[in-house]
Simulated scan of single mutants.
Amino acid sequence: MPSLFRKRRLMVVLIGFIILVALIGFSIRDRASLSTPEKFLQDTVGWMQTIIHKPISVVDHTVDNIQDMFAIYEQNKVLKARLSEYKGVIRENQRLKSDNADLRKTIDKSEALKDYSPIQATVIARSSDRWFEQMTINKGEEHGVKKDMAVMTSDGLVGKIKAAGAFHSTVQLLSGFDRSNKISSWVVREGKEEAFGLIEGYDDESGRLLLEGIKLDEELEKGDTVISSGLGGVFPSDLRIGTVEEVVNDQFGLTKTAYVEPFADLFDINHVIVVDRAAETIEPKNSSEGDDS
């Protein structure tokens, strides 16, 4: 009995194998069209593949998009960092160009001061509570700087040495001048002799220097140039100070006062020249005299 069962099972397996081979051979042969079961099976498989493919495709695209977003974010960070560096380089380049221009002008001015010994210096500090009155430079007595020496930029006079240390000095700016600080000056007029006056202060409201002691009969015009006269033995002569902007009679009506616009920007100073007076004091050009102090 068991032997008969095994034989039947073997026969079933053989018959099934033969049917399978026949079906395979039938399916792979060249035919004009598929049978209905084959069509149904093919469509079913196609629909299942479509259903499975769509979410997989969506997920795949989403992952790709997320990866692209992270890549773009990283690239954006790098570009921003490089842009920030580039802007920093531009600002630094502009600052260096400005400093270079200032230094060139200062050097050119130093070469022009043939009668004097120029000492080039850099501003290293300005007092917060006395910003408009004084500043500190990086040259002192060891470099030849002494008290009361004139200090100028390439544009014009800005002040004088108030106190000289060994390696640093304090500069009293023209904007901090009062009647205790005087500069004897000439007003240069076209076609006329120079008119004498004294720089004796600074008008805070207008931001202009006060040139006082001008004779009543002197006719000054707007734009006339004011230079140092060299009288008094402290400030050298021919240092540019400013231009006349306005002329008024003093409160007593005995002399005139001129408001002088400084050539130099007193509030934006980076490099200066300390003028060591080596030239001899010039003789007065008219009967009026004054002392630098």
Rank of each mutant, 00 (worst) to 15 (best):
residue 42 Q to V: 09
residue 224 D to Q: 02
residue 263 F to C: 10
residue 230 G to I: 06
residue 4 L to Y: 05
residue 271 H to E: 08
residue 211 L to I: 12
residue 3 S to T: 14
residue 71 A to G: 10
residue 268 D to S: 08
residue 70 F to N: 08
residue 127 S to W: 07
residue 279 A to I: 00
residue 39 K to V: 14
residue 37 P to N: 04
residue 257 T to W: 02
residue 24 I to D: 04
residue 112 A to F: 03
residue 60 D to R: 11
residue 92 E to V: 01
residue 166 A to L: 13
residue 44 T to H: 11
residue 141 E to R: 15
residue 165 G to L: 11
residue 31 R to S: 03
residue 166 A to W: 05
residue 104 R to L: 15
residue 152 M to H: 04
residue 20 L to K: 07
residue 165 G to P: 09
residue 242 G to Q: 04
residue 75 Q to V: 03
residue 276 D to R: 01
residue 155 D to N: 10
residue 247 V to S: 03
residue 276 D to Y: 01
residue 156 G to T: 10
residue 74 E to H: 15
residue 210 L to C: 02
residue 49 Q to K: 12
residue 86 Y to G: 10
residue 25 G to N: 09
residue 10 L to W: 01
residue 280 E to P: 06
residue 55 P to F: 06
residue 224 D to C: 13
residue 32 A to L: 11
residue 210 L to K: 15
residue 76 N to E: 14
residue 203 D to H: 11
residue 80 K to L: 10
residue 114 K to F: 00
residue 65 N to D: 15
residue 68 D to A: 10
residue 293 S to Y: 06
residue 136 T to D: 01
residue 81 A to G: 13
residue 152 M to S: 04
residue 87 K to G: 01
residue 10 L to C: 05
residue 109 K to Q: 12
residue 212 E to I: 09
residue 93 N to T: 14
residue 107 I to R: 06
residue 273 I to Y: 01
residue 284 P to F: 06
residue 10 L to R: 09
residue 20 L to D: 05
residue 121 A to Y: 03
residue 176 G to N: 03
residue 150 A to Q: 02
residue 57 S to T: 11
residue 149 M to L: 06
residue 197 G to N: 03
residue 177 F to Q: 03
residue 128 S to A: 12
residue 291 D to R: 02
residue 131 W to N: 12
residue 178 D to Y: 03
residue 124 I to K: 10
residue 12 V to W: 10
residue 197 G to Q: 06
residue 130 R to D: 06
residue 126 R to I: 05
residue 72 I to N: 08
residue 77 K to M: 05
residue 66 I to P: 01
residue 4 L to V: 06
residue 16 G to V: 13
residue 253 G to H: 03
residue 61 H to W: 08
residue 116 Y to F: 09
residue 182 K to S: 09
residue 227 I to R: 07
residue 26 F to S: 12
residue 20 L to R: 02
residue 5 F to M: 03
residue 148 D to T: 14
residue 292 D to V: 02
residue 253 G to W: 10
residue 241 I to W: 04
residue 126 R to K: 15
residue 137 I to T: 06
residue 97 K to R: 14
residue 77 K to G: 03
residue 73 Y to T: 14
residue 263 F to Y: 15
residue 157 L to M: 05
residue 42 Q to F: 11
residue 44 T to E: 06
residue 225 T to W: 00
residue 92 E to H: 10
residue 88 G to K: 09
residue 30 D to S: 07
residue 168 H to Q: 15
residue 24 I to M: 04
residue 68 D to L: 11
residue 58 V to T: 13
residue 285 K to M: 13
residue 14 L to G: 07
residue 114 K to C: 00
residue 251 Q to D: 15
residue 171 V to I: 15
residue 35 S to Y: 10
residue 241 I to H: 05
residue 224 D to L: 14
residue 286 N to S: 15
residue 220 L to G: 12
residue 45 V to T: 09
residue 135 M to H: 04
residue 70 F to K: 08
residue 272 V to D: 00
